[in-house]
């Protein structure tokens, strides 16, 4: 009995630790006064200021633009790559897998500065283009790594059966292989999108003046002190995430849900 109460209290404390900072941001996003010491009255002015803040709105636009392009390109290239790697001999496969793991295991900051060094060596102007290339680069391995296991599970006979029944190789690829590995492709795409939206370190080093994503904007604002608009932004982002996750939770079945949640842990 005591044991049970102890467990409950401990669980509650951990969840309070996790949520207290977020709840406080949300509460203070409605606070009249700019200081966070005390709550002086209810207001929505920070929300209207947020939507009129051109810097934040621009970085929101860049975040989404980069994430959409990076996840589309890396999903396409990564899926092709996974099919190719799957059909390689053991030695080639091993070399490519090691290269694939390199950016996954390497510290973000090393990937970031190495890309920056490359872009400057190639005389490319740091900006939107270099940021998109960098995002594709760090997303690609995750797509390859989520599609490959699905290809391994594939029964090779189904593809051969399709060929025997008169399908051309490309038709069989589209109608047999792609649908079978679709769950892997989708989780790779989602993973790329979220990684790209959340990225700070790599964007910070590979973008130039004028182009910043949400993370960079928050970083530079936070260094200059605290702005109540950020509280409003946090609230909106938190609600978006919450609603999306609850929807996904409803739609997917239990098993695949646990899979995708775990994959998010990078």
């Amino acid at each position: 009995m005591v044991n049970k109460i102890l467990k409950r209290v401990y669980t509650a404390l951990i969840y309070i630790f996790l949520y207290a900072p977020i709840v406080i941001l949300i509460v203070f996003s409605f606070n009249e006064s700019k200081s966070r010491g005390s709550f002086t009255g209810f207001t929505l002015k920070w929300y209207s200021m947020l939507f009129n803040d051109r810097q934040i709105m621009r970085s929101m636009y860049y975040t989404l633009l980069v994430a959409v392009i990076a996840s589309c390109v890396s999903t396409f290239l990564g899926t092709l790559a996974a099919i190719g790697i799957h059909n390689m001999n053991k030695r080639q496969k091993k070399i490519l897998l090691n290269i694939t793991y390199l950016p996954v295991l390497n510290p973000d900051i090393v990937t970031a500065i190495s890309l920056m060094v490359l872009f400057i060596a190639l005389n490319l102007k740091l900006g939107l283009f270099t940021m998109i290339i960098s995002h594709i680069t760090f997303c690609l391995p995750y797509v390859v790594l989520s599609v490959l296991p699905k290809l391994k599970q594939l029964n090779p006979n189904t593809y051969e059966a399709a060929l025997d029944l008169g399908a051309t190789p490309s038709y069989a690829l589209r109608k047999v292989i792609i649908p079978e590995i679709m769950p892997g492709i989708i989780s790779g795409a989602l993973l790329s999108f979220t990684l790209s939206v959340d990225d700070f370190v790599i964007s910070f080093f590979t973008t130039g003046s004028g182009v910043s994503n949400l993370s960079i904007t928050i970083y530079s604002m936070a260094r200059r002190g605290i702005k109540p608009e950020i509280n409003a932004l946090s609230t909106l982002l938190f609600l978006t995430v919450l609603i999306l996750l609850l929807l996904i939770n409803k739609i997917t079945n239990k098993e695949s849900k646990e899979m995708s949640l775990i994959e998010k842990t990078k």
Binding site: L18, Y19, I22, L25, T194, V197, D198, F200, L214, S215, I218, Y219, A222, I230, L233, S234, L237, F238, V241, L245, K264, T265
Partner: peptide, 8 residues
């Protein structure tokens, strides 16, 4: 909370 932006 993990899905919230790391900087936030």
């Amino acid at each position: 909370p993990m899905w919230m932006n790391f900087l936030l």
